[in-house]
Design a protein around this nucleic acid. Structure first.
Lengths: 209, 209, 209, 209
DNA sequence: CATGAATGAGGATTCATTCAT
DNA sequence: AATGAATGAATCCTCATTCAT
């Protein structure tokens, strides 16, 4: 009796979600998260507002979905890079490259999406995603310190600085409107970061006075 | 003629603006910029909505005011530090410290306020403020490179990374909910940053004053 | 696909617009244009304010709609009368009759709507409508002068007086609250107007003293 | 104890009212009645809003006052003209001239003021003023009919047409934006009006078809 | 009397969301 | 499943008016 088999239904569902992702991204990029109304999405996708509600519980679900779909690949890439047996410095460089490149394409989007913080309860998944990434990168840094390649700096803080500086760079560029390609920025970023992190010649470590 | 002298009026005005700043900050921190409605502010301050409009042209003016009041001291501090004759590395350290400390108190606020992007037209003053800071810091870095203290890396990119990593750190902390005091983070940050920036040969490391 | 066919939708739309026209008219007549708030209309029509916005972009659109719906039939009638091959005097009489009758039903409305001046930008269509009517009537008067039926008075001024006296009459009645039927007023009006306009036998010309 | 004597107070009062009239006129002319807020007036006059309320009960009182001050001279002039022993046709011509000229100077104003009708309760004085004028003019027309100078047309309707055509002309000009001087319009107007009104040679009367 | 800060009642709009068809 | 009309809560903003100083 059912018109669509389970499979067909799932396929339909996937198509709809693809469409929504595509158009929601475009709207957010061009006009900001505030412009992402159900009406706008519905019109862009070519369905009625009501139909949208058959696929997403509410507007927040749409936002959550778009975020997830944007960040998950980055997380997976980080996991994959961490799983290789490259040396820690190289891993970090690749991660920086990946994030930067991945983010580059959706530049403004990241910014628009990021500090949703207070807007509704998407914090959980977001934080979880973030803390997963953090934990993985922290592992890499601990490895580096353990192997004597990196200085003995507090890993937790180092991770935050690593991630923070990448995200900060993206935000910086977004605010100033000047976008550099990954190749133009990542080397300098890593030069600075690794330059300071590498346990090169001995140098007394600095602590807060 | 007038019952209140100019001074009294100014004082009243200042009081109101202080109040608004105070409560607007609280609202933004706890619930985000989106929760900053005129009604909320009015209730918090203890006046009617109408009264608010006697002090601020519109909601946007309130937001602008809060931003200015938050960022201006930072900008001025940066200017002052840049004007000293400390060596570049120390200047950068102090600036990092200042921003970090200053921002620490209003932590989440910065994030909530920063990427207003797409929302209203307050970008101008915001960008100007930012570019002023950027220009000043860029000057310091050029000095460092000129004096041979820093590596010859593209100053523009270095600044972005410097500023970006600080802002990113703040945002990182804001997202994760764990806030470190400046003393706990800045040394590490500068160790990394300066470690990578310095024209190698060893040199005693600089500490936060 | 759609539950409602295009036709049904159009019908619904027409119904709503009819309703709005009806009630908006009543409100304007009784309490003036200023009383025509979206709330008032919504309550009168029996829908929510939000629903109104599904049919009209904003309050201005409602006003424009009511005006158009009121004036357009008059304009069309004038065009039709002008297109006949009646003699000019008769054309004018019929036009006066038409305007007067048509307007009679919406009497006060015309006044309430007409000098919206300074209020919103609906002047364009209004003026255009007016100038179309003027142009047509001017043509009739020129014909009359050309054929020797009318005196050689400046057509432009004559039109203004013709139109002005009709509109003025309506306004007069509206202000005084006494409404005469077209049959009671138009003959007198035309007697005066045509009596003065016709190129009769000689008559001493009157000049301003 | 009183600071001001009655006289002084009255003088002060008159000054204030003069000022208000002056500036209120300017505002109405340039921006319409809607722009006539207490704040605007207060600023223009150079006093506080509160002070305005010492001279006028409310906004409506201001509007009433401005109207009165504008129309009263016209009414008085009509009375004076009616009191002369000129012949009826000449009286009407002079009245038309007077109204037209008087209004010419405040052109748009008349329109802006006229259909206040529904706006608050200034109807009484307005109507009274109007009906006084009507009554006087009606008297002139009756005289004309009585003396055999005018045709036997219903005086009430003739008055309305006379007044209506003048006011209509003014409004016409206001709407179209083209203002003619009294000398350019009144002769034509009176030519038409008196041409039709005079009991001249016999001519078949035209009735509505 | 003058002042002007405070008030609060409107009025316009926008959207997320529901639900009958 | 899809539709889209209807809803109504939320928000911004404007002013006439009051009243303590």
């Amino acid at each position: 009796m059912a018109r669509y088999s389970e499979k067909q239904k799932a396929a339909l569902d996937a198509l709809m979600r693809d469409d929504v992702y595509h158009h929601a991204m475009a709207i957010i990029k061009n006009e900001g998260l505030g412009a992402l109304t159900m009406e706008r999405i519905a019109v862009a996708v070519g369905v009625s507002r009501g139909t949208l509600y058959n696929y997403f519980d509410d507007r927040d679900a749409v936002i959550r979905f778009v975020k997830d779909r944007t960040f998950d690949p980055i997380l997976r890439a980080i996991e994959e890079i961490a799983a290789t047996d490259l040396d820690p410095a190289l891993k970090l460089t690749r991660i920086a490259n990946w994030i930067f490149t991945g983010v580059y394409n959706d530049s403004a989007l990241i910014i628009a999406l990021s500090p949703t913080k207070h807007e509704l309860g998407n914090r959980e998944s977001e934080l979880e995603r973030r803390s997963q990434a953090i934990r993985i990168i922290e592992g890499i840094i601990r490895d580096g310190i353990g192997s004597g390649a990196f200085k003995k700096l507090p890993p937790v803080v180092v991770v935050e600085i690593f991630v923070g500086s990448i995200m900060g760079m993206v935000e910086s560029m977004s605010l100033s409107g000047e976008f550099y390609r990954a190749e133009a920025v990542v080397p300098t970023l890593m030069e600075l970061f690794l330059g300071g992190l590498r346990a090169s010649v001995q140098r007394p470590i600095l602590t807060t006075p």
